[in-house]
Amino acid sequence: MLAAAETAKVDPMHQFTVEPLLGHDWNVAGYNLAFTNSALWMLITAVALFVFMLGGMRQQLVPGRWQMMVESFTGFIDDMLDANIGKNGRKYLPYIFSLFMFILFANILGLMPLGVVGVHPFTFTSHFTITGILAILSFAIVLIVGFWKHGLHFFSLFVPAGTPLPMVFVIAPIEFISFLFRPFSLGLRLFVAMMAGHVLLEVLSSFVIDGWNAGAGFGVLVGIPSFVLMVAICALEILVAGIQAYVFALLSSLYINDAENLH
């Protein structure tokens, strides 16, 4: 893939490169903590989310549009937790809401066509070093809640209710392995979905540019269909941005449900 990228004028993977902006040599105990473009976009996402949430702080009895929008987002996550976890789900609202909104804003900000004005958005959710950490965080919460509430009885999670005794020895290892795979599937799903979309858009845009550079015939034949497809895929990517954030939050809440309401 690197060899192909070197020959092409547009490198579809270049957009994922993390570049230090400040403090190349901020090292703590041998670990580099440089403020990168990835960190910058995390900060931008956090600030955008904060500004968005300010609309919900008016706390009026009859909400305006903005307040209504904030309330519909909290209500959406609240309903999801209520449906998946039950009454106890309310206490996970801050975490799941932060997770959902942080991922959602990151995904959507990463899709913004800011390249037109020379700013290149960095989609940090297309890095498994980010999605993996978030997945491990969710998984850690599941483990902590599970062992805190149920102690060693939490291991009965690996024996589904109503399993015949002889089958326990077969099913328990399978359940255990599928349980261990949860953080990987959780982190990889978001990373792959975001990266694939961005690569696809970048490849199509390189078709548009290379097609027109090769002449008007190629431009009409390749460039225009690619451009139309890009527009369509941009719409799809906005959908994917929302769905992936939702799936991440939904699966996190389902896993927490296992720990909260052990069968």
């Binding site: 670990y31 580099n32 990835s38 960190a39 995390m42 900060l43 932060s98 942080f102 940090f124 980010i130």
Partner: peptide
Amino acid sequence: IWSSQLFWLAVIFGLVF
């Protein structure tokens, strides 16, 4: 980059949380 990603994510997601 992993240490930088982890650190800044912890800081910023922590702030968000």
